[in-house]
Design a binder for these strands. Structure first.
Lengths: 365, 365
DNA sequence: TTGTATGCGTTATCAC
DNA sequence: GTGATAACGCATACAA
């Protein structure tokens, strides 16, 4: 080699030599192969420990054609929803001995990001809120490499899903039911006029918006308006208040919690009280939804569980060479303070002393 | 091989054969080796594309002894501070062609987690808020594999740091100055009695606490109390209000924002107004600090930048075989609504219409 | 400019 | 129960 100053890497060969056995025996001993005698097994382990031997995953992967690695692709980690999902995914993956390869990519860069996983030989791949078609991704990944998709965001896919017949390996929350329960709660609180505040351009937003519209219409309430905001609108709360059209509706249904929390601030800046003047409802139940002022009523998705479930599905799929069937996860309405019985009644939740949130109306399945 | 049903993997050999060149030529062509003629280079690229060739990173790593992989070890991703750091880290890593190996581990599991990086051959490792001694970690990683530490949390290390002489590869915020500026702001607002709400048991908490104590004492104010909470106290805001001892102090200095936001809720549940009855200040400036009600005054750390900086430091260190010197990042006080001029004066920021937060008092360096 | 040959560290096959 | 040996897929030193 032309290189200089190489650090003398400790390899299996070193361990074997030092233990006075062959590399094959050393390998088997460390792999707890039952054919190896207890004495040599222990010997090899001791020698390995004393030499600070670290197995080389690249070599192992090359040979075994498995990397013990799972790829996680999501739009961004600064979004608390995705952060929660990632946290759950990592925990479950680690508990099965898998390491997470993590790539954040917006829809434009998704293709390249996906390739990263293929090159690194991830044993399984999870797409979160991705615009890629999971079926196309699966084709690219090959039959040996399972691909699951969490809240996939592609039209063709959700169209096909007409009556709950999603392809295998898809994990979703039951958005339509969740929003429906949320809106029915608002209706029960006396709200008649509605605004839906959208985010994103995929079917996830569309499903939630249309579920809201449908539920309002079914109740004979109205009017119903919808506004679509830019993806990062929640980062500029100061501009958000102005986006609420006059007259102020009775209720605002937000695409998700981060938007709802920013909206709460925007409304406050405009002097509009929540829930006194308008009720606000979110989606996801991120950690800060429960400590906002007013505390946010929201449709709780099992955020971290979704990540765990995805990882677990991949591990199972790798073992059984078959993807688990699609799952539509139940969501539940968590009623807090941002929606108030009596609709426009001028009671302000500020300083109110609501205890633990009420868990109500589990839906979906 | 005893295995059945293997998918015929496309390897470099296939590409070479299909292009009618040797493997070496194919390899060089794909690596954009200037010695290869344009015509063959193009030919090989076309063939590779048409065959859907995906290079095998394991084989490449085995040969090159580099994985183009960076290890990121942090306590948890569900904490927004760490999520922001991770996001920045990933973006910077990806921009240099590195993929992030991500492991979350509490202090107990850190050793094992660290080993995961060694086995997978991460080219560099970043420890975030870790209890491991960066120097010990570096020794384990070997001289070829840089290790940087963000907000390292180990006594021996911070002790040694007496007058800013941290070891190379350490990245910290200037916590002492940050807290000092925060407390001075509170003093200027008229606060005399203080409570410090701590989290964690490492030196990071200690540094912030003592900085607060010292600043209060230096101003001749007091009394100063400190309470240490459990690490997950912020997840149970309902219990938080009760942890504030009577009489209520003029100001509460929180270890970080997530704790401060939970505290805001706990205080509200007890009917204690912020900033009317007590001023509250956080640390980090996580995204939701600016939309809480009242909006949270906090010491803003360059959260995402810290992640970016760490990744960038690793990339540089890999290239130059030398760690960049330690950096203590400046923080700045962001005055919002949770601290109010006049101290106990009964003005309530609820409904106030503060515009963009004031950036004030950049400190450190 | 291209081809030949070797080795990276491991596991698996086959013999003993 | 253990040892020799051959891949795994790639990049490079060396020869041409």
């Amino acid at each position: 080699l032309g290189e200089a100053g190489r650090v003398p890497h400790v390899t299996l060969a070193d361990v074997a030599a030092s233990a006075g056995v062959s590399r094959a025996t050393a390998s088997r001993a460390l792999a707890e192969d039952p054919r190896i005698s207890d004495s040599t097994r222990r010997l090899v382990h001791e020698v390995a420990a004393s030499l600070d031997y670290v197995p080389n995953a690249a070599a192992r992967s090359l040979r075994k054609r498995r990397t013990r690695t799972l790829g996680l692709l999501l739009p961004s980690l600064s979004d608390p929803f995705h952060a929660q999902v990632a946290a759950g995914f990592e925990v479950e993956a680690a508990s099965h001995g898998y390491t997470v390869l993590f790539v954040a990519a917006s829809s434009l860069a998704e293709r390249r990001a996906f390739n990263v996983f293929l090159e690194h030989g991830a044993d399984g791949i999870c797409l979160v809120s991705s615009g890629m078609d999971p079926l196309a991704a699966r084709a690219r990944a090959g039959p040996e490499r399972p691909v699951v998709a969490l809240q996939p965001d592609r039209v063709s896919l959700l169209r096909r899903s007409g009556q709950g017949s999603l392809p295998d390996g898809i994990i979703r929350t039951d958005d339509a039911s969740g929003v429906e329960v949320g809106v029915r709660h608002l209706l029960a609180m006396g709200c008649r006029s509605f605004l839906y505040l959208g985010l994103g351009s995929g079917p996830t937003d569309r499903v939630r918006r249309e579920a809201a519209r449908r539920t309002v219409a079914a109740a004979g309430a109205g009017p119903f308006q919808a506004v679509r905001l830019e993806d990062d609108a929640w980062r500029r709360p100061e501009t958000l208040g102005a986006r609420i059209p006059d007259p102020i509706p009775d209720a605002i249904v937000c695409f998700d919690d981060k938007l709802a929390l920013a909206l709460l601030d925007g409304l406050r800046a405009r002097g509009i009280r929540v829930p006194g003047h308008v009720s606000v409802i979110g989606y996801d139940d991120i950690p800060f939804a429960r400590v906002s002022n007013p505390r946010l009523t929201t449709v709780a998705a099992p955020t971290a569980d979704m990540g765990r479930l995805a990882a677990s599905a991949l591990v199972t799929a790798i073992r059984d060479r078959a993807l688990p069937p699609a799952r539509v996860l139940p969501v539940e309405l968590v009623v807090r303070e941002s929606t108030l019985r009596g609709g426009r009644v001028g009671h302000d939740a500020h300083m109110s002393d609501a205890g633990e949130p009420l868990r109500e109306a589990s839906v979906g399945g």
